[in-house]
Design a protein around this nucleic acid. Structure first.
Length: 455
RNA sequence: GGCAGGGUGGCUCAGUGGUACGGCGGAGGAUUGCAAAUCCUUUAUUCGCGAGUUCGAUUCUCGCCCCUGCCUCCA
């Protein structure tokens, strides 16, 4: 079996994956700030890392998958105030909604889903260490800031150097910062804001510190994989590295994985541009598997253009797989994954390539089905691939027929047509078929009877 | 301006130093009472443009054009 190689953002090269310790893998993925519902961009990260998680597990690694919730932040405070509820109320609503979306998309829950608000002491301790080690300072305004110039490797992940950043920086230079790039570790609470006690007074943490603190707490000062969207590379992940390595003497993350964006009209989908679709909006029109298929159809590091046409296409290609599943007379156990599939997945989780293997097996399966050959081996391998990617998990007839409340009427008409056909009354048979077609029902005659589907 | 990643058939999406995977669509055929579904054949002398290295480049190097992203919260 080929070994897993993955693209490490840290050096922009594909590397053979070797965990720090035996077969144990610690993987931390930046989750979401729970102030609003998730959009398709979030769906991509979650599906991509779910697939990575599943693949690592398949390879026999013992994975500890940690994904955080940022549940304290300016936007949360703002939204909660606007909605007239507490931040806790807002975040728990959004976390529930998030879980609903993830369950629908077939994403497994991580082993741990730590929340910032329940890790205050860990963050405070890390900030204290950073101050003690002279990587952080308290400004006149009472903010605790990280001094980026103290950390020699700052910019290593994002390939930036501090001086370039400053010349092109659009960041307002705060007087109280020693360097414009210094970022907040802890900030004093304003009137009416939620706060926690700390050695620097009542306040709350900056955004970046939570991920350093929570990842190290749950996975250790050195762990294997850290992932997230491309947009987090700088400054968030860069800052995480600066914090964790300065405070812990550890390696922090060995491999950094970043997925590409979801675009609309070749433009990044984002909250600030307002060009986003929430997952739940999309799921009103499309089955969750369609969204998953859409995401897995493109390599995770490439841009992914979102449109109804693209989702329609994903649906059509999924239909092809379901047509085959529908013709299988029984459910099959999981067989071996084809070598080509394994190779594709081992090559930096190339799901697009893996899918092409699925379609090839699908064709072979159709051929065997047509000729009446034994399909069990192919069907078992097909099933294994479907399960691996969490596609084609529905009952095939349910997939095509939906929740048809008029199923009995349709089937009665089909029965009439079958009788007409056996009496060679094709005029009647065709008129029944046309009648159904007018209702969006398409018939498919097979040796084992007539199947129908909604279009 | 700095840095990063892209430009592959009608659309979409993989990939490779030896003329290109898969899906959708188109054309023809098989099958079918007719369809539907399926299968077969076919649909890029060609992988943004120009030059270089090479026996040979779409794949490596250099230059150019175009697109996107990051440099501010962002998955």
């Amino acid at each position: 079996m080929s070994s897993l190689s993955l693209f490490n953002s840290l050096n922009r090269k594909k590397e053979t994956f070797i965990p720090l310790v035996g077969k144990r893998v610690g993987m931390y993925v930046c989750g979401v700030t729970v102030y609003d519902k998730c959009h398709v961009g979030h769906a991509r990260v979650m599906v991509v890392f779910d697939t990575i998680y599943r693949w690592l597990s398949f390879l026999g690694f013992d994975v500890t998958y940690v994904r955080n919730f940022t549940d304290v932040d300016d936007k949360i405070i703002q939204r909660a105030a606007l909605a007239g509820m507490s931040t806790d109320e807002l975040t728990s609503i959004m976390i529930d909604a998030f879980h609903q979306d993830m369950d629908a998309l077939g994403c497994l829950r991580p082993n741990l889903e730590p929340r910032a608000t329940t890790h205050m002491s860990d963050m405070i301790r890390m900030i204290e260490t950073l101050i003690t080690r002279d990587f952080a300072y308290v400004s006149e305004t009472g903010d605790v800031l990280y001094a980026v110039r103290k950390f020699a490797d700052y910019g290593l992940l994002s390939g930036k150097n501090i001086d370039d950043l400053e010349s092109g920086s659009r960041v307002d230079v705060d007087q109280h910062k020693r360097d414009p790039l210094d970022f907040v570790l802890w900030k004093p609470a304003k009137e009416g804001e939620p706060f926690w006690d700390s050695p620097w007074g009542k306040g709350r943490p900056g955004w970046h510190i939570e991920c350093s603190a929570m990842s190290c707490k749950h996975l250790g000062a050195s762990f294997d994989i850290h992932g997230g969207g491309m947009d987090l590379k700088f400054p968030h992940h860069e800052n995480e590295i600066a914090q964790a390595r300065a405070a812990n003497d550890g390696l922090f993350a060995k491999y950094w994985l970043h997925n590409g964006f979801v675009n609309i009209n070749a433009e990044k989908m984002s909250k600030s541009l307002g060009n986003f679709f929430t997952i739940s909006e999309v799921l009103e029109k499309y089955h969750p598997e369609v969204l998953r298929m859409f995401i897995l159809g493109t390599h995770y590091r490439s841009p992914l253009d979102f449109s109804d046409a693209a989702l329609d296409e994903a649906e059509t290609s999924l239909n092809r797989l379901y047509e085959t599943k529908r013709k299988l007379s029984q459910n099959f156990a999981n067989g071996e994954l084809p070598a080509a599939f394994v190779q594709a997945m081992n090559d930096d989780f190339n799901t697009a390539d893996a899918l092409s293997v699925m379609f090839e097996v699908c064709r072979d399966l159709n051929k065997s089905l047509d000729t009446g050959a034994d399909v069990s081996a192919l069907a078992e391998s097909f099933t294994a691939m479907c399960d691996m990617l969490v596609l084609v998990q529905q009952d095939a007839n349910a997939w095509f027929q939906g929740d048809a409340d008029d199923a009995s009427v349709i089937e009665a008409l089909i029965l009439q047509r079958t009788t007409a056909k056996s009496e060679r009354d094709f005029a009647l048979a065709d008129s029944i078929r046309n009648e159904l077609l007018a209702k969006g029902i398409v018939l498919e005659d097979t040796p084992d009877g007539t199947l129908w589907k909604k279009v």
